[in-house]
Amino acid sequence: MAQPTPTQDDLAPPPSLFKLGGVLFWIGVFSFGGGLSGWIHRQVVHRYRWMGNEDFLSGIALAQVVPGANVTNLCVYVGYRIRGAAGAAVSLLALMSGPTVLCVFVAIGYHYVQDYPVLHACVDGVAAAAVGLNLRLGVIGTQRIQRMRRIAPMIAMVATFVSVGVMEWPLVPVVLIIAPLSIAAVWPRKGASDA
């Protein structure tokens, strides 16, 4: 219970589709300024313990590599792991239905917001803080890499960040170069002991 990151062993039983959809619906509705991946992690791994931390982090990598918005991909993966294909469909629909309607209302009200500097500052402040929710997931991922106790994954992480984040090199070629190297470095060697 006091453990900050639940492991596979102490998972809660899978929820009903209705409950799963309900949780993701509210994440969608309240995710002002973004930070959805951080929200999903918080609810699904920490609050409800439907999924292990390792499993979730593996889903993040998958969501980034598969084409499509990272958040919707992650949502599909999470829904699938918790309740199968139906869980994936319900999760995606639940997560996206609120924002689809709300973003149009925000677009209609946007001029109003522009006229009030206080509201504008609120919006900017919330959006900046929401980036922190996703940064937190980066920290969790980094801690997991540290636990691997190998140098290659850490190098791959820093190389990806420097190339795409700092140098702003195009993502696809960078991933196509780093991914094979990173995988090869940790590939199980023939003849190596049962390590």
Partner: peptide, 27 residues
């Protein structure tokens, strides 16, 4: 075994992209 290797190889790229995404939004 190869699944674990793929995951251990890809996960750091996911984390690197997560940090990059934060920078890209601010830019």
């Amino acid at each position: 075994e190869w699944h674990a290797a793929l995951e251990m190889g890809l996960a750091p790229i996911g984390t690197g992209l997560m940090f990059s995404g934060a920078i890209a939004i601010f830019r």
